[in-house]
């Protein structure tokens, strides 16, 4: 009973952390695919998320059909923007991470300006369906219904993503390309098609996260930067090897951002980057695993 009393004040931040973590997971999974499969450091990834967020703000009118429409429109628009980024990265540009970073950073700046120009500098309101606009009781606490539903939907998305990577031919191709992209090309698969496909899927994931996460974070002028930063942290913490690693890292980031703030308000903002620094330092000291089976 005593333990229950201690845990109780932190239940809501912990639940928020799960929601936040899953949101970051859906967004970061796309960046992991970009970097791990196509080898592209896409600094415009946060902008793709913002496209989804602004689409939600523009289309959501408090009804269910508008939510479905916003989800489809935001996902498609961000996927198209992702494919456009892939189109800008020619074969030679795609080989250099510095060129990628500069080019995609430029796209992010231009995209951010276009979004602010179109929707204005103020954070637009987002209207969720009326049925999800209230709160429900969770162990004696009121908790926003939308966030609970979001946790379920994001968990479903994570599960579907896991199945797609593990069980489909496209997923096999993704895992093979992470391992040895050159051998995948030598098997007859076009690297350009992989690059465009992966960036479009990554954009679609970011767009879907942007729509679904709009009532939680954003959209706003800082949304793209925040999401990009958190996604990069997840990429560093979770590595590029598996979606499970990405999920664990995203959930950890979510908890640090919410439960961490509740437990240690003064140090929580630094915890995220301290964790990242520790992981980088430990990895730098580990012997390198062989790149290829021999």
């Amino acid at each position: 009973m005593a333990a229950g009393i201690r845990i109780d004040p932190y239940l809501v931040p912990a639940l928020d952390g799960v929601a936040y973590g899953l949101l970051v997971f859906v967004a970061a999974a796309g960046l992991v695919l970009c970097f791990g499969v196509a080898g592209i450091l896409n600094l415009a990834h946060g902008t793709l998320f913002a496209i989804g967020g602004y689409t939600a703000a523009a289309l959501l009118d408090g009804g269910w059909p508008s939510l479905a429409l916003a989800l489809v429109a935001g996902t498609v628009a961000a996927a198209a923007a992702g494919a456009l980024v892939a189109g800008l990265l020619t074969r030679s540009a795609a080989r250099s991470h510095l060129t990628q970073a500069l080019l995609t950073f430029g796209v992010a700046l231009a995209g951010g300006s276009l979004l602010v120009g179109a929707f204005g500098p103020d954070d637009p309101p987002v209207r969720v369906p009326a049925a999800l606009d209230g709160s429900v009781a969770v162990v004696g606490h009121r908790y926003p219904a939308y966030r609970l539903v979001f946790i379920a939907v994001a968990a479903l998305l994570a599960g579907l993503l896991h199945l797609a990577v593990r069980r489909t031919r496209a997923g096999m191709l993704v895992r093979a390309a992470v391992d040895d992209a050159e051998m995948v090309a030598a098997m007859g698969v076009s690297p350009t098609r992989i690059r465009v496909g992966v960036l479009a899927i990554a954009g679609g994931l970011a767009g879907a996260a942007g729509v679904l996460g709009a009532p939680i974070i954003g959209p706003g002028t800082d949304t793209a930067d925040t999401v990009l930063l958190l996604s990069l942290v997840v990429v560093v913490l979770g590595g590029l090897g598996s979606m499970a690693g990405t999920l664990l890292a995203a959930l950890a980031v979510g908890q640090i951002q919410t439960l961490g703030v509740a437990l240690a308000p003064s140090t929580a903002p630094f915890l995220l980057f301290a964790a990242m620094a520790v992981v980088l330092a430990v990895r730098a000291r580990l012997p390198l695993a062989p790149r290829r089976a021999t």
């Binding site: 096999m172 895992r175 093979a176 992470v178 391992d179 040895d180 051998m183 090897g241 290829r292 089976a293 021999t294």
Partner: peptide, 9 residues
């Protein structure tokens, strides 16, 4: 050379 099979597949 070195086979280069996909280690995760």
């Amino acid at each position: 050379q070195g086979r280069r099979v996909f280690s995760r597949l």
